[in-house]
Nucleic acid binder design. Sequence first.
RNA 1: GGACGCGUAGCUCAGUUGGUUAGAGCGCGCCGUUCACAUCGGCGAGGUCACAGGUUCAAAUCCUGUCGCGUCCACCA
Length: 735
Amino acid sequence: MELDKAYDHSKVEEKIYKIWEDSGFFNPDSLPGDRKEPYTIIMPPPNANAPMHLGHALFVTIEDILIRYKRMRGYKTLWQPGTDHAGFETQVVFEKKLEKEGRSRFKMQREEFYKECWDFVQSNKHITENSLRRLGASCDWSRNIFTLDPEIVKVVYATFKQMFNDGLIYRGDRLGNWCFKHQTALSDLETKYEERVEPYYYLKYGPFAISTSRPETKFGDKYVVMHPDDKRYEQYKHGDKLNLEWINGPITTTVIKDQAVDMTFGTGVMTITPWHDAVDFDLAQKHKLDKEQIIDKYGKLLPIAGEFAGMKILAARPLIIEKLKQKGLLEKIDENYKHNVQTCYKCSTLIEPQIIPQWFVAMTKPLPDSRPSLRDMAIKAVIEKKVEILTEKFEKTFMHWMENLRDWPISRQIWWGIPIPVKYCADCHEPIVDTENIISQCPKCSSANLTQDTDTFDTWFSSGQWPFATLMANDARKGLGIKDQGSDFNTYFPTQVMETGWDILFFWVARMIMFSYYKTNKPPFEKVFLHGLVRDKDRQKMSKSKGNVIDPLGVIDTYGTDALRFALIFSTAAGNDIPLAEDKIKGMKHFANKLWNIARYILAIEDVGTALEPSTITGGSRPSPTGTTPADKQILAKLDVVVNSATKNMESFNLHEAAQEIYHFVWHEFADIYIEASKEQLKNEKLKASTLSTLNFSLLTILKLLHPFMPFVTEEIWSKLNQQQLLMVAAWPKN
RNA sequence: GGACGCGUAGCUCAGUUGGUUAGAGCGCGCCGUUCACAUCGGCGAGGUCACAGGUUCAAAUCCUGUCGCGUCCACCA
């Protein structure tokens, strides 16, 4: 048998993937042998609309390594694939596309928009899935699912209804983060703070001095707040009324004393704008104060602003200041006030807090069946290691976040997503949960005058249920109940590992744990393995919205999937970011070629026609100790060490260490030392048998060790060795 | 403001519970191609493991402090 002089991945990868896929071994139901113990990874569903980036390559590499390893160890392995409609993310991308075409969703019908967005996502979805194939992902495509598939939506709706009935979901007039551009509320996680330098104004408010960077919010200020212990304002009592001249004329203000005021900040006096500020909102709630909307949802001033009504806030600001100045109410301006402003994480538009009715999930409210709150169940699970977050660093971060958790707003005023299954009675205003869309009469007042809620769910409300929703959906498709023998949910839940990026620890992982306990009283997964971010060569974060994503398919074309995978895993400790240098990938292509040539050397000996039968060459049984040379003994001993250590590292998720030691062994022990020694030994007829046997045993073992990391080249070489079964289901080496 | 992490060879980074001459990829210097591989081989240069203390028989690894860098969370009217 003669191999090509160099390994050519382009001739191999597509062919091998097809062999794997045709074998059916991606599907746990079709694996050879009697496999009882399941090992399950639910794939974090990639955003269906987004082209693949190196983050995908990294997660596929890690998860595929784990799955292939466990498959070789005889587990009933399920890697559940899927794609994500990614509500807001996708809508933003799609709206940008519309914008380029000179269109806008605000000029479209909702149905028209949804259909176009659906088609857009569907066409990109296949591209994403094929990219996963090119990366060698050995996931079970027969179970492939999409977050908007009806079986998933059904599970999501059932959870919503159950939570609503349990009083864990409520509709509230609460202050939310409002993005003017995207015309939707956002959760705190979907906003970011940006440092800006803006003028800061000191104003005369009757006898007081107040300060603000946002004079346009001040029209409705009819309360003035100070700390009860502040000696400077002793003469003012809580509830005192004062008349004073303000922007648009005389007003009456009421003194409020509250400890929330920081006496050391500014003058220790502030006025409040409950409709547009979180602290002020809380104060107003506490003291039952009036709340007035100053700015509408398009960022324009309302009639309360008098002559400024209808103006955009930023345009009005200098005019308001000018008027204050003319009235002698402006004391001074600090032009270089540095502060952080909250902005939309997608478009950096200033976030305006607004009171808008939204649906919330109560995170800290105990469950009606006497279980603790969603938040507390998740904290308990992590403390008790029912869910183990790998690396202490992330566990700490997780706990810190959980302990400060607030209620979660789950409604969005966008169109791309799962509609909230609620109707409102126009007569008695009762919200009616209608998950089947069959209710036409208000159960309370019998009115037939019902209107549909127009909001959609936060994507994470549905993807937070992904681990059990996917398995339940699989069962629904097969007509199985979740408790039936052999159902996916029964067999594969809880799953073993959740592998994902640390950047969605709060968005996703935390929510999955909470939903899972709520719904099943079990953890969704036993371990959480968080990988870092693949950064570009300037260490910049790669993201769809920044447009700096590097297409991994180009790198694969040049160097091969195995090289990319090995480069990604090679120096990747859990949780550390990875700046990917192309040189590293190139080096790993060389390694694949090295492996190829090791096999080529061994196979060539066979062709040269030694005394050995091919069966001996390819049998791969461990050489018997008698008749081996010190060199044979040494390499076999080292092989044992590597098998041992690599196995240990695979079990403890130190994949990069396993990769490194295998690499070192193959190149610098086996090739550099033993193969060189073998050339001399083969000249001696008496040593030929044991030498060949040592070479072959070592090679076969190496192929098994490397297969999870470099599946293509190892499977290809394996096939040249006339093996009966595929390497992907060969047994992991033991010693 | 709160929390977390990092500082190891010219560059990018590994180094699990403290234990022999601290590693990899790339780069660099010299030598070597009929004999698996030039996508290679051999030899080599290069690190006071940020700094200062401490614990220990033993510290890159544990503790304290200093300097420098970064991340996350929250946010002052």
